[in-house]
């Protein structure tokens, strides 16, 4: 399954430079993608699927569909 992946913040260099779609196994769940990225404190990162948030409880349960945009960003407070 091909997915689009956006990673913001200090870890964005972990993504391939071409920013295109990335091939993942068909049963991939959002939490597994964050694990694959080996992010520090990855369990605290925010995950959006097509702009909508995934709760902490659901990140290993939600099913993904071909072409989904997965956005991952670090927990930030303040501004």
């Amino acid at each position: 399954m091909k997915l689009k992946l956006e990673l913001f913040g200090a870890h964005s260099e972990k993504l391939p430079r071409d920013e295109g779609e990335i091939e993942f196994p068909d049963e991939t769940v959002p939490g597994k993608i964050v694990d694959w990225l080996e992010l520090k404190d990855g369990d605290q990162f925010v995950i959006l699927i097509n702009g909508h948030p995934v709760s902490l409880e659901d990140r290993y349960k939600v099913k993904l569909t071909e072409g989904d945009l997965i956005t991952v960003f670090p927990p930030m407070e303040g501004g």
């Binding site: 200090a10 925010v46 956005t71 670090p74 927990p75 930030m76 407070e77």
Partner: peptide, 25 residues
């Protein structure tokens, strides 16, 4: 010191928030 929150603030500052809020709406 080793937290991801500190990494982000130190590297990109609070400015990093703009991508987040834009993606989130």
């Amino acid at each position: 010191d080793p937290s991801a929150r500190r990494d982000s603030l130190s590297t990109y500052g609070t400015h990093a928030m703009m991508d987040n809020t834009n993606a989130f709406g």
